[in-house]
Simulated scan of single mutants.
Amino acid sequence: MRKLLTGILFVAISGGLQAQELLSEIDTKEENKKEFVRNAFKSSRVINGHSMEFIGKGVLDVRILHRFGELNSGASNLFGLDEANMRLGFDYGLSNNLTVGVGRSTAGKELDGFLKYRPVWQSTGPGSFPFSIVLVTGITVGTMPWSDTSHKYNFNHRMAFYNEVIIGRKFSERFSLQVSPIFIHRNLVSLATDENDVYAIGVGARFKLSKRIAFVADYHYVAKGLDKHIYKDPLSVGFDIETGGHVFQLHFSNATGMNEKAFITNTTSDWGKGEVRFGFNLSRVFSIGKK
């Protein structure tokens, strides 16, 4: 009997040790597995500008961007709520790293389209990379009738282009930061003294306050190409509120335009003078591809 009990105890201990070794191997494999970092931002845009986040393959993102009038317009204008500009956009994920989008803005009656690609995705584990790199190229087309009918304009005069590189990192579950150099070319400018090429640097940040609410901000410094006595750097701050399939954003901004060419090259309002607009962005995603 003693020998039998000893044998059973030996087998149990050996089996336990083997199980621990197997679990240890599984844990090691899990630790060594490459993982991509997700949810740096809750939306594919910070507020105005693109974020380093993507919407995913087979996902359609319907976006409604809304800007009211300036707060300092007074009570007669209900502090800007009596007027509004908006952009309706449709973004579609061709893959997890490639998105195409189109939109139409009431400000300037502009059509816009863009292509967004992520060649480098922040990850952890073997072969990981510490930050994401995203490339964006876009085009805008104005559809307003020409105010000067004495001059003959061509279709290409309505067009503008932009190229952008986004370099960003999710530092923790709470904090993400990105920097984005941007080049904009306008085929037609208002004055002969204006430059066709504009260079800017954007900064976007997100700080998570709770499970469903985050503080977000984006700022674009115009380095060259605009008269700073007339045009101002666009600055926007706000809050993301996640509600299931929706991301609802409340914000304040001195920019009226809602595409890169518009908000970087056409912002004339000054935060210091109270020329700030209240607005909201609404994002609703639909999975229309194969699961």
Rank of each mutant, 00 (worst) to 15 (best):
K170M: 06
D194E: 06
K208F: 09
N187A: 03
G238S: 10
D233T: 05
L250A: 11
Y231W: 12
I201E: 02
K224F: 02
T140E: 05
F248I: 15
F175Y: 14
F175A: 11
T149V: 13
A217K: 03
F215H: 10
H251W: 05
S190G: 01
S176M: 02
R212T: 12
I213W: 01
K224G: 00
I166P: 00
G244L: 10
R174Y: 08
S269C: 08
Y153A: 03
T256Q: 02
N156W: 07
V247Q: 05
S150N: 09
F215R: 10
G168Y: 11
F175D: 05
V203G: 09
F263H: 14
V189T: 03
T140A: 01
T265H: 03
S269I: 06
A205M: 15
M144S: 11
Q178A: 01
V247N: 14
S147R: 14
N196T: 03
W146V: 12
T193Y: 10
V222N: 00
F263Y: 15
I184S: 07
N156L: 05
R174M: 09
F171G: 04
V222F: 00
D197R: 14
T149I: 12
A262Q: 15
Y199C: 03
G245E: 14
T256V: 04
M144P: 04
D233I: 09
W146T: 09
V136C: 05
M258E: 07
F131D: 03
R186A: 04
N156F: 08
T265L: 04
G142K: 00
F263G: 11
G245M: 11
E242K: 02
D194P: 06
R212P: 02
H157F: 07
L250I: 12
P181D: 12
I182D: 05
T193I: 11
D197G: 13
G257F: 01
